[in-house]
Design a protein around this nucleic acid. Sequence first.
RNA 1: GGUCCGUUCGUCUAGGGGUUAGGACGUAUCCCUUUCACGGAUAAAACACGGGUUCGAUUCCCGUACGGACUACCA
Length: 499
Amino acid sequence: MSDQVRVRFAPSPTGALHIGGVRTALYNYLFARKMGGKMLLRIEDTDQNRFVPGAEAYILEALKWVGIEIDEGMGAGGPHEPYRQSERKPLYRDYAEALIANGKAYYAFDTTDELDAMRQTFESQGSAFQYNAITRTRLKNSLTLPADEVKAKLAAGEPYVIRLKVPAKEEIRFQDLIRDWVNVHSSQIDDKVLLKADGMPTYHLANVVDDHLMDITHVIRGEEWLPSAPLHVLLYQSFGWEMPRFAHLPLLLKPEGNGKLSKRDADLGGFPVFPLEWKDPSTGVVSRGFREEGYLPEATINFLAFLGWNPGTEQEMFTKEELIEAFSLEKIHKAGARFDIAKAKWFNQQYLKQRSDESVAALLGDALPAHAAAIVHLLKDRVTFPQEIVTQSRFLFEAPEQYDEQVIAGKWNADVEGVVRAYAEALATAGTFNAETAKEILHQVTDAKGVKMGKVMQPLRVVLTGAPAGPDLMLSMEIMGKEEVIARLETALTRLQTA
RNA sequence: GGUCCGUUCGUCUAGGGGUUAGGACGUAUCCCUUUCACGGAUAAAACACGGGUUCGAUUCCCGUACGGACUACCA
């Protein structure tokens, strides 16, 4: 086995990559980088019925978006091509047959219908059917059938699968990097199908063969694989191969209620569970994505990294480089983590504040037609998502249709009206116009009129923007421009005649 | 049902035989501020339960409860 760490992320292209999958990929990536190793991407498309067009491209794009770089495999090439399992199809049969040759596996001819019937019979008797050391003796396979009949069936092209001959009584144990020793008795494992009737391998075979061939040193995957890990151990033993180390990650759980995070939670909770927006090609249903919702990639990975892992310090904000530096498998939590979108929003807000005005403006593109950097500066600290800057800056370009009634009723009076009139006049004759001079002139006017600033600010804001609260008014005025400000003041004076 | 895995504030978690059980999100209050937000401060808030082991268990062991995953010719 390689003395360099080699890990792999191996999704199957059956739809949009789930955010939990992104976290799995992230942990693999962080570990690889931390250890100076390699990160591989392999596509596990051995189920031809579940193939979804576009899913593979989606995976590549999603990983790229969050900044997970692939060293080898899909999209990167490498010495073990191809990295798409469907293209490695012939390979797996050879390995399955090698197992038959050394007595570790066998051909099975039972049809799906026969097995379903079996399951039903067992179920009606209150037990679960298992294809195992006991039942295999009564089923149709190369262990029970005479050798020449098996040969005839194969020659006749009868459909068959290859199953692993799981030993009847054997303790299987392995040391998980996160959960420590896991023990399972072989009687609990059934004779899993290794090679399907269509000639494709199952996950179990393909994953073990490829991990071995690709020199994978650490298998870091979701906890849903833990129950089948002993089977994989058995497979490595059957092949006589050295095993990679295993690390089974805790699951991402629903924000409330029971169970693991699912697509349904997104619809219910109003938040995304996919990194990128995804349109299901067969139903046309669109699922929201973190990227489209306005989450920054750096916020997304920081949030994800902390769902199940913690460096043990009190630092919360981590750049990708810092995550790599701090990462270790030992610090991964054992229990599942509830998905809390509020925390994700907080991270987003923090990273948004951290970005320069220019970079956020660039993010927004032409959604902000003019004064982009200035507008970002005005609103960046007040929002969670970049696009909120666009919606919240609309008042700069659109004069208010109506004024906040409460403020007008309570604070608009002859004094204020006088100040506003004088202010409009003073501005008209003023030279330079910016936030600073606007404020200076306002002070001059209120001083001259003997009106307290505190009495004027809010009605002035309402008259200019319509709203009782908002971002810095002087800066807002600077962006609106002198002419617009004066126009809005004059409109207000005619609309709000005190007489 | 069976097998496996898990259980510290509402949530993410730190810690670990003797601690005022720490931080963050969220919540509440206060301060800052012309407003709102930002920021700052403060507060409420947790070791699932029962047995051991021990001078002493939240921490170690065993049960119980609860939760989760898996139980396909899907991954």
